[in-house]
Design a protein around this nucleic acid. Structure first.
Length: 245
RNA sequence: GUUCUCGGCAUCGAAAG
């Protein structure tokens, strides 16, 4: 079943549904029953290509076959709902899983928090962030990044920077994603000097800005009409050997 | 050496809705 799971995961991630279905039937024919991981792979594949109906079809089928959705299954669905902006539904799933005795983990919480962050509902996101502690879950760099992104999107750079410092204090290492998020936020509100300083700090800390980092910077600057500064970063990027896309 | 297979965070675009 591990062999089939690996193959089906790969095929679903590439959107090769026909091939995946063939293997799926193949394994059943050989007496190897798809398990919760098989179904999770298929459901996730459909979710990440926006095929919500198909995802639900497999979710239902899985239950019909007597398999219990686990924390990963629920997180896949919550993540998909969050990204679609159906946060109310996503949050309901969190309640459902708790009622069923499936313990949500940090990944589940981040998926839902990200939904609130993308929707700009920062107080709801914060509530979840705090409830992680009461559930004994560790607040990791992923969930800090999601929150920071939310504050950047809502142009509350003070809060975003506060969280950035908090995560440093707690020994969590900011990643290239953390820096890119903040740089984009700073540029969008016109704090170009702060962005420049942070970029320098990032490099000092041994993180190389990538193409997305520069795209974020340039996009933020152009968005606020600062095309000159954007050109500076563009040249900077070329100087670092990055190829614009 | 957290090691058989599944889930969470950043830019833009396309598709879908």
């Amino acid at each position: 079943v591990v062999t089939y799971n690996s193959l089906i995961y790969g095929l679903c991630n590439s959107g090769l549904w026909e091939e995946a279905t063939k293997l799926f039937n193949d394994m059943v024919g050989k007496g190897i029953l798809p398990d919760v991981i098989t179904y999770n792979s298929v459901v996730h594949g459909h979710c990440s290509s926006g095929q919500w109906k198909a995802a639900i079809r497999f979710f239902d089928e899985m239950i019909e076959r007597g398999l219990s959705p686990n924390v990963v299954t629920f997180t896949i669905l919550m993540d998909a709902l969050s990204k679609e902006g159906e946060i109310r539904e996503a949050h309901q799933l969190l309640e459902v899983m708790i009622q069923r005795g499936e313990e949500p983990d940090a990944i589940s919480y981040t998926a839902l928090m990200d939904g609130y962050c993308l929707a700009g509902q920062m107080d709801d996101a914060l509530k979840l962030f705090h409830s992680m502690v009461s559930r004994g879950l560790k607040q990791d760099d992923y969930c800090y990044n999601a929150l920071i992104n939310g504050y950047c999107k809502t142009k509350r750079l003070d809060e975003a920077m506060r969280l950035f410092e908090e995560m440093n204090h707690r020994g969590l290492k900011p990643t290239v994603i953390t820096y890119s998020t903040l740089l984009a936020g700073l540029c969008q509100v016109g704090q170009v000097d702060d962005a420049q300083a942070l970029l320098n700090e990032m490099i000092d800390q041994g993180h190389s800005p990538n193409i997305i980092t520069y795209n974020s910077l340039i996009h933020g600057l152009c968005n606020s009409g600062m095309w000159k500064e954007a050109m500076d970063f563009f040249n900077d990027m070329l100087g670092r050997g990055l190829t614009p896309d």
